[in-house]
Design a protein around this nucleic acid. Structure first.
Lengths: 224, 224
DNA sequence: GCAAAAGTGTTCTTTGTACACCCATGG
DNA sequence: CCATGGGTGTACAAAGAACACTTTTGC
């Protein structure tokens, strides 16, 4: 009976904030990019919807949750992704009037249920922080440790201690030195690092935060 | 286009082993209990399939993953549960020839993809161990700490240190004393405990184990 | 009195957290 | 020479891991 649709929670770090990608169809409120399935693998259908509606392509998607919303006749399989906004110019698709990044703490009115999906996507992202080198994919090939830390702080929504962060990031071996930056303005020039693509865990406070992710409000079934 | 089905990874601890519930339809190999959707909330449809095929009722389901398997025209939304086998007698449904618990390390030939679903369900269960009082729902109202430890050991597939386990379980405050057991055979009689329903974390090795759960092999989409 | 299971504490190591000052540069 | 941002180390607290013997009972 039930039909399947896909929807995407695509996030970025920009303007010192975590932002989500939203689209607006003519005469509608904002919503997550979403679309029907065509019988390809779901993730392929999701990638297609994303490409058609926002112009974004070639990103890694991770399945998030399948929502069966009150009164909906469809099951929406959602995907999350974290990308570098500046490497993915936006191009609204034909039935889309607007595509835009919104700060996750300052969302516009949304299609029912999409706010939940975003919240859950954010939780998943925070959780991954504890064991995956998430930030690295957001930064240019070479970056400073302060930039890396800034990304983590935005994703976690929490200030990190610089000394501990550096110690942990270096110890985890995700980065290797790559020269020295020559940024404009005053201040000592920073060292540059590049990703070593290995496994990561900034084992500290992130792990605590990561621990418990409740499922979104699909009602539990517990009769009697 | 795509249709939705539901399937269930229902687990128990029995015979010193973690077991999964499987069903067999006439002329078929074993499979997870599964069924179509009827437009009710998915979890309700899942509960119905479980009840119709196995006779099991009234259990708490948690969404696991949505599988879109190679060549399948359906998306299978899977659910996990952990129950006490002895409190749920099995009653094969009308189109089922056999319902049985199988040790998770000794599964029969299965419908394609179901082994993955089981493995992922097991991983999820292990992960929950770190922060949820999972074992308590498997034991009778009053139980000994050794019984509780045995459940954890089976779920984690790992031997735990008795002294550390007791310290942590008591410190976590999930159990309270409830008299003394008088089990047959030699040996000092054990104290009984009952669940206090509070939150739990046997914070030790479980957390390490819990950390990383990779998604099952839905192929990642990463063009270019 | 011995076999069987229950119960109990301490030490060491690792991980996490808090915290304040000097360094290199541009203007 | 000062404002700006980069970089560094140490001490304390908490959590985890390892480890062996005594107690209570049935037979």
């Amino acid at each position: 009976m039930t039909q399947v649709s896909v929807e995407l929670v695509v996030m970025t770090v920009q303007h010192d904030d975590l932002e989500v990608l939203l689209v607006r169809r003519p005469g509608n409120v904002w919503s997550l990019p979403s679309g029907p399935t065509y019988g390809s693998p779901l993730a392929v259908d999701a990638a297609r919807a994303l490409h058609d509606q926002t112009g974004i392509d070639g990103i890694r998607l991770e399945q998030l949750f399948s929502f069966d919303r009150e009164g909906a006749t469809q099951v929406a399989v959602s995907y999350v992704a974290l990308i570098a906004a500046d490497r993915h110019p936006l191009a609204p698709g034909s039935d889309i009037v607007e595509v835009r990044w919104f700060a996750i703490n300052d969302l516009p009115a949304l299609v029912t249920g999409h706010a939940d999906a975003i919240a859950y996507g954010h939780a998943r992202l925070r959780a991954k922080t504890a064991y995956a080198p998430i930030a690295v994919q957001l930064l240019p090939e070479a970056f400073t440790l302060r930039e890396l830390q800034a990304v983590y702080e935005v994703v976690l929504g929490e200030r990190l201690d610089t000394r501990n962060f550096r110690r942990d990031a270096l110890a985890a071996g995700i980065v290797e030195a790559a020269g020295t930056a020559r940024r404009p303005g005053p201040g000592r020039p920073a060292r540059l690092y590049r990703s070593r693509g290995s496994d990561f865990s900034v084992t500290a406070r992130e792990r605590r935060i990561a621990g418990r992710i409740a499922q979104p409000s699909t009602p539990d079934i517990t009769p009697e």
